[in-house]
Amino acid sequence: MIVVMEQNATEDQIQAVAAKVESFGLKSTIINGTERTVIAAIGEKRGSFKESIESFPGVSALTPISAPYKMASREVRTEPSTIQVGSFTAGGGHVGYVGGPCSVESEEQLISSARAVKAAGGTGLRGGAFKPRTSPYSFQGMKEEGLKLLAQAREETGLAVFTEVMATEDVDLVCRYADVLQVGARNMQNYRLLEAVGKSGKPVLLKRGASATMDEFLLAAEYILNEGNDQVMLCERGIRTFESHTRFTLPLASIPYLHRRTHLPVIIDPSHGTGHTYMVHDLAVAAVAAGADGLIIEMHPDPPNAQSDGYQSQTFEQFAETMTRCQKVQRALAE
């Protein structure tokens, strides 16, 4: 249920309604919009909830939330959310560009990558310190040493640091170093992890599972939002289909669909979504043209010798060219 307050509702009236909502055993979340404030009442309604609330001073109307995902729905927040952390901004007309290697491998590799991202106009640095790999014998990441290198790169370049957290017990450690916690596709429905990153208060980049429906994707985001963390970005990174010409199938239709259903920013990952370097450039540009709020792209100083995902990583020069074209499209759309 959404309690819509009148435009001239006072702070005391808003707080009184929120307290009344909670007296019914519901969770209240106050959402301040540009025109008016709404209060989301989440949970099983009991007793004479509607009659009790609609008579309160300052209340304009009560509206049921039809979507299964409550806090992520456009019914709760009609305006697009903007996520801003350090140098990075996404949503509300802003496009955030994140680049960097799949895995943190060495100081030289990471720092040179961060400098290249910064020089190309990027605002975020990605890099995996903990790497989930299909094979247990593959490179698993540098762990805390990798996190320290990411923090060092941020210190030099000012780029916001994006890195994946894989387990609930690692959340506090990763929070010490990262600006944005990434939940990978394999963990999209790891509900205890979603709750943990929600409680962290850090911005979260949530990747869609390879076989997840849109409702499942948005309900996963709901776990984070339900912990009081409204800094959630949805990342479309491709889904598994019958096609074999790409690593995954990257459905750019997700962008307008999600913008219609949710206020959360939509980030596109054309690297995992294609699995081939030569496709990344065009899909990145197309994503910006389709209205994406951000891109996260894998790049590496020496892709053929990368310890993970070199076959889908751009060189520094390719990344710079992609950034130039994406920014041209972004400017054209803004005119």
Rank of each mutant, 00 (worst) to 15 (best):
K27E: 15
T277P: 10
R192V: 09
A160T: 13
V285S: 08
I239E: 00
Q312P: 00
Q13H: 01
D282C: 03
S87A: 06
S244P: 01
F56R: 13
N305R: 14
D12V: 07
R46W: 01
K148I: 05
G47E: 11
Q13C: 06
S81G: 05
G158W: 10
D269T: 09
L181S: 06
V288N: 10
A210L: 12
T246G: 05
T134G: 02
K131Y: 04
L181V: 08
N226A: 12
S244F: 02
D230N: 08
L264K: 07
R46K: 14
S244E: 09
F130P: 04
A67T: 14
S211F: 14
R36H: 14
I297Q: 00
G121D: 05
S112L: 03
V329Y: 08
E222R: 13
R237I: 00
P256D: 08
E317P: 00
M1N: 08
V4N: 08
R74Y: 01
A290H: 03
S23W: 02
L234I: 12
G201T: 07
A210M: 13
I14T: 12
Y69C: 01
D170E: 15
A116P: 04
S244A: 11
C326D: 03
R77Q: 12
L252N: 08
A196T: 09
Y69E: 05
L173N: 04
T315Y: 06
C326R: 00
I296D: 05
G294N: 15
S113E: 00
S254K: 01
N187K: 14
I268W: 15
G184P: 02
A120F: 06
L193V: 13
A253D: 14
R36E: 10
G58C: 10
E236T: 05
A212R: 04
S81N: 07
R154C: 03
Y69D: 03
A61N: 11
G128P: 06
A129I: 02
A287G: 15
L225Q: 03
V59T: 02
L110I: 00
Y278D: 11
